[in-house]
Design a binder for these strands. Structure first.
Lengths: 109, 109
DNA sequence: TAAACTACTTTGTATTACTATATAGCAGTA
DNA sequence: TACTGCTATATAGTAATACAAAGTAGTTTA
């Protein structure tokens, strides 16, 4: 399904945090995962800019490892600040999600 | 609750479409409604820019009416294109919402 | 050697919410 | 009259983010 770019803002960063948080991973793999799980149109450039943003904000630890199939991979892990950010994201998501559900059901008062 | 600005992008337009779609309303009232229903920090300027965007995209019909309590109000209604956009929005929201739920529950494969 | 796949990087653009400010009508009151 | 508060709309400037597009490089395979 084609999703409006604007609806993904903020959301994609949350997804990337979640992916990194549940196990060390790298940009190319995250992109593949998204493309295979409901976000077909997300391209590498988008994921890499998010990863670099997380790095700049010091939410991740990075380790470079050789690959058996191509160039070296940059593996990401969440540090304590990153874990906190991930938790925050899901809290906000849950909140917005709840409000939206109520809003949808409601007509004017 | 304080929500990251980026998480609201796309969402707010959907909410405004929904409000207009369930009954003629105007900017100030929409802002009040949002402030009273989980989006405390949304200010008038934000709502008005959304309304003008909808107007520019020809998704709404507008009627100016005198108020008994202040300056005239600009009432908005969805036209056919606006209704379609509203339906689209909720489809996309449902889709993203579903994917997010699955993503949250999942660790690495 | 060339193509295909893996993997990361960067530059520029469009969109959108927010900040801040301005304008204005009306009611009550000091 | 002047002031305050509430109602109501408008807009210029800014920051954040996803995307398009292009490039760089290593590995594998035909």
């Amino acid at each position: 399904m084609k999703i409006a770019t604007e609806l993904l803002k903020g959301v994609l960063e949350g997804i990337v945090l979640q992916r990194i948080g549940t196990g060390e991973t790298y940009g190319y793999e995250i992109t593949q995962y998204l493309n295979d799980h409901g976000f077909e149109d997300v391209v590498e450039g988008t994921v890499y800019t998010i990863l670099m943003r997380l790095e700049k904000q010091q939410l991740v630890a990075i380790e470079k490892k050789k690959s058996d199939r191509g160039p070296a991979r940059k593996f990401y892990q969440l540090n304590a600040a990153g874990e906190e950010r991930r938790a925050q994201f899901w809290q906000q998501w849950a909140y917005v999600s709840t409000q939206m559900t109520q809003l949808k059901e409601k007509t004017h008062d």
